[in-house]
Design a protein around this nucleic acid. Structure first.
Length: 204
DNA sequence: TGCCAGGCCCTCTTTAGGGCCTT
């Protein structure tokens, strides 16, 4: 299986367009069907973390004050990931924060994002909902039991990604499940999904 | 919890509204 970089941000809020900043980032590299390496760091942007976000993530303003500068962390992240394509749960969120933080240091993202949430909505329509934690329980995946911290959520997303690739191969009969294929699959209308998958499945 | 955004997706749709996801 090709290498992908699964990323998760903790932030001060929902919108970098409104001034929210990242507070923690984690990336796990998935290759050969397993997690092969990990990067995580708190990051100091100088931004204020509201109390309810402190409660949600356990990341406090005091912790951030002692964290390395955001530019240093983003540089380390870029070096760590290299040319691997991205994966995130609700990728529109993490991709906007990654692009915003990188743009501040003049760095531009080149690799595309695949979204585990859009794929899970298609592959597991019977899940009660498609929050990361719910999917982990629904599928019986390893639960890091520390939700809303970057590394724990990135690892859970990685296990979800591996499960989706495995299910497409073993249950749907696909021989090759690439990042590019899954990016296409996440955009296929749900009603057309069986026919789309059948086109690529090996002959019954 | 802090009232904000963006994108997807469904439906009582497309000249729109609201729920789901992410912090």
């Amino acid at each position: 299986m090709e290498t992908v970089a699964v990323i998760d941000f903790e932030t001060t809020g929902m919108s970098p367009e409104l001034g929210d900043r990242a507070t923690e980032v984690a990336v796990v590299i998935v290759s050969d069907g397993k997690i092969s390496s990990r990067y995580q760091s708190l990051m100091n942007t100088g931004a204020y973390i509201p109390p309810f976000i402190e409660d949600l993530t356990g990341i406090s303003n005091e912790m951030i004050r002692q964290a390395p500068p955001a530019a240093q962390v983003m540089k380390e992240l870029a070096d760590f990931v290299g040319a691997a394509p991205w994966v995130a749960h609700n990728a529109s969120f993490d991709s906007r924060f990654l692009d915003a933080e990188w743009s501040r240091m003049g760095h531009r993202r080149e690799q595309a994002f695949a979204c585990s949430m859009l794929l899970a909505r298609r592959l597991y329509p019977d899940s009660p909902n498609h929050k990361l934690g719910t999917l982990v329980r629904f599928l019986g995946l390893p639960d890091t039991a520390r939700h809303h911290r970057a590394l724990a959520d990135a690892e859970m997303t990685a296990h979800l990604w591996l499960r989706m690739v495995s299910d497409l191969k073993n249950r749907q009969g696909l021989d090759v499940v690439t990042h590019e294929f899954l990016r296409a699959l996440q955009k296929v209308p749900k009603a057309k999904l069986p026919a789309y998958i059948a086109k690529f499945a090996h002959a019954a």
